[in-house]
C-alpha cells in the first residue's frame, strides 16, 4: 500500500463541487489530524452535506482531490475505515433493530460483535423492536450502532441530532462521548453553535461552500467576541474617526448619520476615549453573544 505512515484522516485540496449551475462547494482545503473531533459548522446550504458526501465517496468533486487516510474514499469505505451517521432515512422499517445491525455487520470483512455495538449505542434494550416503531432518537442511535460496527478510523456525523428533543440529544452525545476515547477521528456537521463548542476540539466554519474560519472553540469565539459601542457624535471628521480606529482592539468604525458605531474587543478603552477626547454622548455598549459571533462570521454581512 502506498500510504504515508501517518496520513491525515481527511485531506481535501482545492475541492469544488457544482450541481449544474449551482456551486455547492467553492474551493475547500482542509486537513483533519488523526484523533481530532472536528465540528463542521455552518448554516443550512453552506455545503456541509455535499462535503461529507465527497469524503464518503458518494459523489465525486468537480475539481480537486479528496483523500481519506491517504487513500481514495471508496477504498477506505471498502476496508471499513470510514463510517457515517446520516441525517435521515436509510433504514428499513420492517427489520428489527438487531436484524438491521446484523445485516450491516455481515457486509464487512471484520466487525465488532453485534451485541457489543448495540450495548455501546444504548439500544440493547430495544434490539427486537421493529425499526418503524423506534423514535427518531432511537433510530439515530441505531445508525450510530451501524457506524461503530467496522471500528472506523473516521466517523462522519451529518447533523446527527436534528429533530431530536433535548433528552434524545443528550443520550446521543453521551453515547458518542463514551466512544471518543478510542482515538477515532470524528467530523460532525452541525448548525448548532453550542453543539460545536461543547463537543469539538476544533471548529471549521463554512459559509457558501468555503471555509471562513478554522480553530478551537475559544479561538472562534475570540474572532467575534468583541462588543459594539454606539454613541451620538454629530459631525465626526476623518481624523477623529482615524484616531478611534487606531485604538487597540478596534475592529471597525463607521458612522450612520450622527451615530457612531464601533466594534471593539477592548470596549473600555474606546469608551474612555470617546467620553474624554470627543463630544460623544448617549454611549451604549452591547456585548456580542456567541450566536451573533456565529452569524457575523457566516452571514451575508461578513
Amino acid at each position: 500500500m502506498t500510504t504515508r505512515p501517518n496520513p491525515p484522516a481527511v485531506r481535501l485540496s482545492g475541492v469544488t463541487k457544482a450541481f449544474g449551475a449551482v456551486e455547492a462547494v467553492r474551493g475547500i482545503d482542509l486537513e483533519l489530524n488523526p484523533g481530532e473531533i472536528v465540528a463542521f459548522l455552518g448554516p443550512n446550504g453552506a455545503g456541509k452535506t455535499t462535503t461529507i458526501d465527497l469524503v464518503l465517496g458518494l459523489s465525486r468533486p468537480t475539481t480537486g482531490t479528496v483523500e481519506v487516510l491517504g487513500m481514495e474514499p471508496r477504498r477506505a469505505i471498502a476496508r471499513g475505515l470510514v463510517a457515517a451517521v446520516m441525517q435521515t432515512g436509510g433504514l428499513l422499517k420492517d427489520l428489527t433493530v438487531r436484524e438491521t445491525v446484523a445485516y450491516t455487520a455481515s457486509l464487512f470483512a471484520d466487525t465488532r460483535p453485534v451485541d457489543e455495538v448495540l450495548e455501546r449505542a444504548g439500544i440493547a434494550g430495544i434490539a427486537d423492536r421493529r425499526v418503524g416503531k423506534c423514535s427518531g432518537g432511537e433510530q439515530q442511535r441505531l445508525r450510530f450502532a451501524m457506524a461503530l460496527l467496522s471500528d472506523p478510523a473516521l466517523l462522519l456525523l451529518d447533523e446527527p441530532t436534528t429533530g431530536m428533543d433535548v433528552e434524545g440529544r443528550r443520550a446521543f452525545w453521551s453515547a458518542i462521548r463514551a466512544d471518543l476515547a478510542t482515538g477515532r477521528t470524528v467530523l460532525f456537521a452541525t448548525h448548532y453553535l453550542e453543539e460545536a463548542d461543547q463537543y469539538a476540539d476544533r471548529i471549521v466554519l463554512v459559509r457558501k461552500g468555503k471555509v471562513v474560519a478554522d480553530g478551537t472553540g475559544p479561538e472562534i469565539r475570540a474572532l467575534a467576541s468583541g462588543r459594539t459601542l454606539r454613541a451620538h457624535l454629530p459631525g465626526a471628521d476623518r481624523p477623529t474617526l482615524e484616531r478611534i480606529g487606531a485604538l487597540g482592539g478596534v475592529d471597525s468604525v463607521e458612522t450612520r448619520g450622527d451615530t457612531l458605531i464601533v466594534q471593539a474587543k477592548d470596549s473600555d478603552a474606546v469608551a474612555r476615549h470617546l467620553l474624554t477626547e470627543t463630544d460623544a454622548r448617549d454611549l451604549e455598549i452591547t456585548a456580542q453573544g456567541l450566536e451573533e459571533a456565529f452569524l457575523s462570521l457566516t452571514g451575508d454581512a461578513s
Binding site: 457515517a84 446520516m86 432515512g89 422499517k93 457486509l107
Partner: peptide, 13 residues
C-alpha cells in the same frame, strides 16, 4: 427511495 441503498453505499457491499 427510502435511502437504504445510500446506507449500503457506506459499506463495502
Amino acid at each position: 427511495s427510502l435511502g437504504w441503498s445510500r446506507q449500503l453505499r457506506l459499506t463495502p457491499l
